[in-house]
Design a protein around this nucleic acid. Structure first.
Lengths: 347, 347
DNA sequence: CTGTTAGCGCATTCAG
DNA sequence: CTGAATGCGCTAACAG
């Protein structure tokens, strides 16, 4: 089969190299892996043969023999907004430094729904798993924990799990953002929540409430609208809030995407931002600086979250005894142009 | 080592299953792979053992033995804007249907710079490669072609390559967008180019020029500004263009991100969009509908590009004889609110 | 229908 | 310092 020869021109094995350089393939293996006890002339001879034949190692086989793949898996819900992209950037960069490769899995896959899908990854192909923003992690978290498989959660403070996790100070971020509005003179501040089954959404709501009560501002239930982190719920929320008998002078959304949805509504109603109504978001996704007016928001260190998560995971890989840590990275209020002093419109 | 037992609780092999169910492991293999010639009772017995022991197959070993991994690699420059994210969504979805997994590689990795990095992937771990927006593909395209390794380019119409590629009708998109402005009465239309070593950037420029000459509008060199697809170059371009003795009444940017940079500048100078100046972008990234005013732009079917690229790749995998195809998917003008009729400001 | 055998390509002992 | 042997976990003929 001459076709075979063409197609598999890369099928040069360690054995071919051994033959070409007149040594045993054990020695070739030693050269490949940079082991010390090889005579320099031998090493040179082998190297030459490798170059000449165009040998590249078969990682599949290496992994099998060695029992480790140097691949870690990243489970994400989606890649739509750039939010996840930032996190992945951090993960990827850190993996690169450690010489690992990245396998990406999106949970909206049909396959991901099968309970044993994760199990089959874990068995062989992937040495560890970073779970980014897992929506219903119950599905696989059980398997992972029971198998004692290295994994770490990013941005999920579910209370139900004992897995290591990296989050941010959601409560504090929401508190500071709310306080920022209060300091600007607002006292009728609306809040759009996220999906309330997520820990981070709960924390943000709590931070908002805490700031209000700290400043002796009454909580008005009508001003709290339950959203779902998608733009449409921001639209719905703004419409509902602006229809109130006494509409808010400021809206704090649990993420930037919903904030942008709200901004849209506000503009369509002929109101000005921030003159008529102030808006604050959460996340600081890339486009938040690009919308008009640039959005005041709470910055999450997304890239760093990915980075830290990866470091934790790699540490667990090195030393399985590593304690399950939970870390919170600091959020930061970024004041841009969507907020300003409260002006009594009647005045 | 009792610790070993805990950690490797997943280390149940096909052999263990065979022993537990009293058959040879050849039979177990048959059951796993759903091969027909197995007696129903035997199958049942094996299945039971599999469940009982919690056996999951080791894909690493399976891949080695079978000679195929069912993993394809996706090479991307970055994940910042959601542009790439859309493409990946298409790729991932299509791979899912075909039962393949996705390995993600970012070309900004240090490792990616090493010439043999791609080679080492190609040898063993990955069965095919989707190259998204490769900036300087010369580095690895050579190896891929010479090894006859299945790969497909997305959104790169470099003329220098014979690899299969999926692109869009950049020329036509740019032509239609320019014509849209002309039809609105603009005849002093500026153009911000992309990185000119990319085929798509060249095509867009050509489309712009073609529309002008078609409508007998003179090309004015000062109105063509060379950008690089990043926001900052949109800012620089807008500043330069607005400082012209006779500034343009409309700006067409080669992508949305640069268009948004330009919008920023325009607003900072106290000009209104589109009343004072119309803006058109290219790509239709998600946030284009969300900025203010919503951006008129040329839509690229990003997800579909990923989808089609993947289909082509999978077809090549099935049948290596498949001819190297180059496809162009249609772009589409999306008119939103950043463009309007030309109004003579002096009038 | 099922057991047996020989690899897949490499790492890793253990001798020499 | 180097060669030979054994196994990683599974597939794929080949018998029976």
């Amino acid at each position: 089969m001459p076709r075979d020869e063409i197609q598999v021109s890369g099928r040069v094995t360690i054995f071919d190299v051994a033959e070409a350089s007149g040594v045993s393939y054990g020695t070739v293996s030693r050269v490949i892996n940079n082991e010390p006890h090889v005579r320099e002339t031998t090493r040179k001879r082998v190297m030459d043969a490798i170059d000449r034949l165009g040998f590249v190692i078969n990682r599949q086989a290496q992994s099998l023999a060695r029992g480790q793949t140097h691949v870690i898996g990243v489970l994400v819900p989606d890649l739509g907004t750039g939010y996840i992209g930032e996190i992945i950037r951090g993960i990827d960069d850190e993996l690169d430094h450690a010489g690992f490769d990245l396998m990406l899995f999106t949970t909206h896959r049909r396959a991901a729904k099968e309970s044993n899908y994760v199990a089959s990854l874990v068995q062989g192909v992937v040495e560890g798993l970073v779970l980014v923003l897992p929506r219903n992690p119950a599905d696989y978290l059980g398997v992972l924990s029971s198998r004692n498989f290295p994994h770490v959660l990013v941005d999920h403070q579910g209370v139900d799990t004992t897995s290591p996790a990296i989050g941010t100070t959601n409560w504090q971020g929401a508190f500071l953002a709310t306080e920022h509005l209060i300091n600007l003179g607002h006292n009728h501040i609306a809040f759009i929540t996220g999906t309330m089954d997520l820990g981070c959404a709960q924390d943000r709501l709590d931070g908002y409430k805490a700031a209000l009560s700290m400043h002796h501002i009454p909580q008005i239930p009508e001003l709290i609208f339950e959203g779902d982190f998608f733009q449409n719920s921001g639209v719905a929320a703004a419409n509902a809030l602006l229809d109130l008998a006494v509409p808010p002078s400021a809206i704090f959304a649990s993420n930037d995407v919903m904030a942008m949805g709200a901004m849209d509504v506000i503009r369509h109603r002929g109101l000005r931002i921030p003159d008529d109504i102030s808006i604050v978001g959460f996340d600081d996704i890339p486009q938040s600086a690009m919308v008009f007016p640039p959005l005041t928001t709470v910055r999450q260190p997304l890239e760093q979250m990915g980075r830290v998560a990866t470091q934790v995971l790699l540490a667990m890989l090195k030393n399985p005894e590593t304690k399950n840590s939970r870390q919170e990275l600091p959020t930061q209020l970024v004041v841009r142009s969507s907020t300003c002093n409260y002006k009594d419109r009647a005045g």
